[in-house]
């Protein structure tokens, strides 16, 4: 299809002709400048993600695993997908309890255990690369240890977020983490609440294809 390529590019260049197009300058201040304190960012994040049915728990840094086990018990979840190699996952693994949920790792290609993941995993636990206060969004870059489907297929997704990891805006997150310079991962995500739809008469329903619950543990 190189013929198509050549033809399309030629038409575009011909169309522009000799008249250079001069677009107006892009002033990003409207999506960039927010003078929120850390506390305001935390509060805003919590308000926004809660408004779209996300569940937020602020917990002390050394208590979050206990809190997780309690939440899982309350929700009747019996197993948890968690990486034994990430700092977040490792803590869950090392502090698992005899009577608590069974842990399993995402340690082989999806092709080997698709039905198992789709049908038998109750919940997954992941970390994140921070969050965005303005929209109540979590930033995830899935990795070898925490692959893409962990945050998508199990009905409940637990995410651990540091209270100091919250950016005011998406623009700030991009800029401060230097996404464009780092080079983008195969998949990067913003997640803002559980999966939902309003396709039937604009009535909200949760958990249509992805998790029906998104639980954020904010470590303070």
């Amino acid at each position: 299809m190189t013929a198509a390529r050549t033809a399309i590019l030629q038409r575009l260049r011909a169309g522009r002709g000799n008249q250079p197009l001069s677009p107006p300058a892009s002033d990003f201040s409207v999506v960039r400048d927010r003078d929120w304190t850390t506390a305001e960012k935390l509060e805003r994040f919590e308000t926004m993600i809660t408004s779209v049915n996300g569940e937020v728990h602020r917990v002390a840094e050394d208590r979050w695993v206990d809190h997780l086990w309690a939440l899982m018990a309350a929700k009747g979840l019996t197993n948890l997908l968690a990486s034994p190699e990430t700092s977040v996952g490792r803590e869950a693994w090392t502090r698992q309890r005899e009577s608590g949920p069974r842990l399993r790792a995402y340690d082989s290609p999806i092709d080997d255990w698709k039905p198992e993941l789709f049908n038998n995993v109750d919940a997954a636990l992941t970390g994140c690369r921070g969050a965005i206060a303005e929209t109540g969004s979590l930033i995830l870059w899935p990795t070898v240890q925490e692959p893409r489907l962990m945050s998508l297929v199990p009905p409940v997704h637990f995410v651990v977020l540091g209270a100091d990891q919250i950016y005011a805006t998406f623009y700030q997150a991009l800029a401060e983490q230097g996404w464009a310079d780092l080079g983008m991962p195969a998949n990067a995500l913003l997640i803002s609440g559980p999966s939902k739809t309003a396709d039937i008469e604009q009535t909200l329903a949760y958990g249509v294809h992805g998790p029906r619950e998104l639980v954020v543990l904010i470590l303070e």
Binding site: P109, T135, V144, M184, A188, L189, L190, I191, S192, S195
Partner: peptide, 24 residues
Amino acid sequence: ATGQHVTTYVNMISGPRKADEFDG
């Protein structure tokens, strides 16, 4: 579009599954 501050997912794809990855 729908009066949402953001959609539930913003999915940014920059490549296929890498050799050591388990999905994608």
